[in-house]
Design a protein around this nucleic acid. Structure first.
Lengths: 160, 160
DNA sequence: ACGGCATTTGTTATATTGTATCATGCGTGC
DNA sequence: GCACGCATGATACAATATAACAAATGCCGT
């Protein structure tokens, strides 16, 4: 059995707390958490699930902000760099990191039926990947694990 | 240490053998391996590294074939379905599977310096993922593992 | 406060990747 | 041969992401 931490995205379910934590973090590090960056992060948090770049753009505009795609992508790059946001390559979407201040390798369980995504942090997976890469002489910068399948809820309801 | 199989893409390095094997496989299964499908697979094999859909399209046209993007994507879907080709979501590229007839979970080591991709098949990673997903009640259909980093060659040459 | 510098954002245009839709071809089996 | 199903063609378009340069904004030393 694996050393296994299972987050059901409690962090993201309370955007205000997450935002306050981000404010504190950036205050501490001195990195600039500009209004635009903060708003984009808030949009991602409030989405509560993975959201596309153009959806973010649309919501920015709803708030009276005129913005171009590039603005969103720049902010996304920043937030990913700062480890507050993950990019899900398989579905071209972005979601808030569950535990941004605790550096960790994350794995994502993506439900093909309902579209929900659960972030897990399984150290066994992490370790196995590190070991496998090391054997190949490969220096890992970012291990991406996106597991497509059917979540427990959908499996139970027979949706897939 | 992990149970570790390391393929340096020997399969793809001999396109003719791979094509012959594919011919035999489809002959056996009765699934239609049409000229278009065969040609696309050959293009991917001869590329020897991940190749984009539009690059495939271009090479089809080089061979006097007039084709639209959709044709390429349809064939790619087919080849992926048949497990002869992998899609690399992080870099939007496609590559020939090392051992198509042996169902396996694959992991990819993607070098950010030279762009090379090595397919490995580490059972420890595979097992850890299966176990982690099971704990979450998640039924896996396709586990995607794409590890970004720097390959041994580039690390040695100090390219990154 | 001011000027110079770096970082961030705006603006415009474009590149890249992937699909929808309907028509046509083409082989297989009756 | 012809009806059916699958594969491909043709046309148009959607979705995702980046390039290049200009303007603004904050930071820091003086």
């Amino acid at each position: 059995m694996s050393v296994f931490a299972h987050h059901t995205h409690d962090f993201a379910s309370d955007p205000d707390t997450a935002l306050a934590a981000a404010d504190a973090f950036f205050q501490k590090t001195g990195v600039r958490f500009t209004p635009l960056r903060r708003r984009v992060f808030e949009i991602i948090l409030r989405a509560g699930k993975p959201i596309g770049a153009y959806d973010i753009l649309e919501r920015l505009r709803d708030h009276g902000k005129i913005a171009a795609p590039i603005s969103v992508y720049r902010v996304l790059d920043f937030l990913i760099e700062q480890r507050f946001v993950h990019r899900l390559a398989t579905i071209n979407a972005y979601m808030a990191c569950v535990t941004p201040e605790d550096p960790h390798a994350a794995q994502f369980l993506i439900c093909q039926s309902c579209g929900s995504v659960t972030e897990i942090s399984d150290q066994a997976v992490d370790k196995a990947i590190a070991e496998g890469a090391r054997t190949a002489g490969f220096r890992v910068s970012y291990p991406l694990v996106e597991i497509m399948g059917v979540c427990a809820d959908c499996a139970r309801d027979g949706k897939a």
